[in-house]
């Protein structure tokens, strides 16, 4: 059985708030690479990082992260 993947709406939230990846990285206290890989869903963040990103946007974590169920 395949596990669900973690999707996110970080790019959308960034565009809405006018933040660059570097500015978001600065707010969260991680590298720009980390934000880039989380945004592109190639790196799954820990709960702490996901909550920190949500806090940077002043949104609940569920508004930014969601589960993608495997097809079939």
């Amino acid at each position: 059985m395949t596990s669900p993947r973690l999707g996110n709406r970080i790019r959308l939230a960034r565009e809405e708030t006018g933040l660059t990846q570097a500015e978001l990285a600065l707010r969260v206290g991680v590298s720009r690479k980390t934000i880039n890989t989380v945004e592109n869903a190639v790196f799954t963040p820990s709960t702490t990082l996901a909550l920190s990103i949500a806090r940077a946007f002043e949104r609940p974590v569920e508004a930014l992260f969601f589960l993608i169920e495997p097809e079939g």
Binding site: G29, V30, S31, T34, F43
Partner: peptide, 11 residues
């Protein structure tokens, strides 16, 4: 360290 040794860096 906070940038280079962050979650992704450690991974």
């Amino acid at each position: 360290a906070s940038v280079l040794n962050d979650e992704l860096g450690r991974e």
